[in-house]
């Protein structure tokens, strides 16, 4: 549920957990990101690209409007996220890892 005390556009703090190449590129397992409660994958990706340009072209598309096709977002370790609206809460985690499952 959207936090009724906050405006959906008011920024909240979430964590982005990085795995694989993303982690190696950023040199960190977790990064903090500020984002509106109501956002979408395009906005989220643009924010990540701004804060961590080292991800562009390697994890994030060159136009910064989405992830490369071999990457995926997952919310809190539970839900895989397609393009579309994201309703986030303060303290949520977005996981960023390769969509190439298996091995």
């Amino acid at each position: 549920m959207i936090d009724a005390k906050r405006s959906p556009s008011e920024p909240i703090s979430i964590k982005v957990e990085l795995f694989g190449s993303a982690r190696l590129l950023c040199g960190s397992r977790v990064i903090d990101v500020e984002t509106p409660q109501l956002t979408n994958t395009q906005e989220l990706t643009t924010t990540l690209a701004t804060n961590h340009p080292e991800l562009v072209g390697k994890v994030i598309r060159a136009d910064r409007r989405g992830l490369l096709e071999n990457y995926t977002f997952n919310l809190n370790g539970v839900s895989f996220i397609d393009n579309g609206v994201l309703r986030l809460h303060s303290g949520d985690s977005i996981l960023l890892f390769s969509s190439q499952a298996g091995g």
């Binding site: 694989g20 096709e69 071999n70 298996g102």
Partner: peptide, 23 residues
């Protein structure tokens, strides 16, 4: 290209941390 990137960079070992996080 991108479709094999995981295997080229970390190989299947990339699964360990992700699988753990996903329970």
């Amino acid at each position: 290209g991108n479709s094999t990137e995981k295997y080229r960079v970390l190989g299947t070992m990339a699964n360990m941390a992700v699988f753990n996080r996903l329970g």
